[in-house]
Nucleic acid binder design. Structure first.
Lengths: 167, 167
DNA sequence: CGCAATTGAATTGCGCACAACTTAAGTGCG
DNA sequence: CGCACTTAAGTTGTGCGCAATTCAATTGCG
């Protein structure tokens, strides 16, 4: 088991280049393929994510959508306006709580699901991963995201503390 | 070995939700941690990537930086202007080829490396991955990026061609 | 040489991500 | 009740990422 504390900083600087850059590049590569595939549906990639959430859960307040996707109103408000302009969703203030805005699918938005059903297969094929690899990748990413979010919380709590290895 | 063609579309739609979203979320989670860690250095995450390239390769034309990071001048031009405004790089037209702009580190930019050396360790610790896991993740991401780029090329080359499944 | 094609940066326009702030609605405690 | 606090959306400003366009410099070919 490699002891991280023994690896010199200089080397980590290169390793880091590999990992952070790989993730950055992979994310953009996915974005590019989604962009191509989703063009026919008049959706961007983040808009597609919102539609997936709505197809799965039905109507939701903006807040809930944000929780599913970890996005705040600063990102979602204009995005949802564009989805509404395209005609896929409708936004309406909740009558029970006037602060809340409920987003629900229009007929066009519901119907779009039929046309979107072929998207995942095209992406998975383009990625050229076996289901097992995809599963490995997915679980590693989920773990990393959890750890990083946890660490980010720590940063907020404990300012510029010196090396506090999570272990 | 799971045969992808047997998995129903409906299920893929959910699986896809998992994979694409995981990557998206992980990328943003990394971004958040980098943002925190890099704030002291007056660098954004993409600016940090550029600095890594320059620290490794010395002065480079914009074109070369773009090749290393897969970014075009539309992204790099304003980013490099900001790096120049911060005082980390200087841009100058090449005398041999007036079309080309050479980017080189200033003293401050070179000196920054010393202060950036601790960044990777903090990120790796925050991600809570073992070196082996990091290696697995990195290689999977590299493969996916390659495949996706290749597929994207295919989209460009063969416009609305009939089913040319990548196999 | 002369002119079309190519190349490298930069610019413009759009959309996403996020921080910081604003506004309006709900909640709670004295 | 009244007033401070919290919460949900929205707005503003900055910085990516990318497509499309522009412009100048270079290259290539007749």
């Amino acid at each position: 088991m490699t002891d991280l504390s023994r690896v010199p900083d200089e080397e980590l600087l290169r390793l880091d280049h590999q990992i952070c850059f790989s993730l950055h590049a992979a994310s953009r590569a996915f974005g590019g393929v989604y962009r191509t595939v989703l063009k026919d549906l008049d959706l961007t990639y983040p808009q597609y994510l919102v539609m997936l959430v709505l197809w799965e859960h039905g109507e939701l307040p903006v807040k809930r959508i944000g929780e599913h996707l970890r996005l705040d109103s600063g990102t979602l408000s204009p995005l949802l306006k564009r989805l509404e302009a395209t005609g896929y969703v409708r936004r309406a203030r909740s009558s029970e709580d006037e602060r809340s805005v409920t987003v629900r699918l229009t007929e066009a938005g519901t119907a779009l699901r039929e046309r979107a059903v072929c998207v995942p297969r095209r992406i998975v094929e383009a990625s050229d991963l076996t289901p097992a690899e995809a599963a490995t990748l997915q679980s590693l990413l989920a773990r990393v995201t959890g750890s990083l979010d946890h660490a980010a919380q720590g940063f907020a709590a404990a300012p510029p503390g010196p090396g506090h290895a999570t272990g």
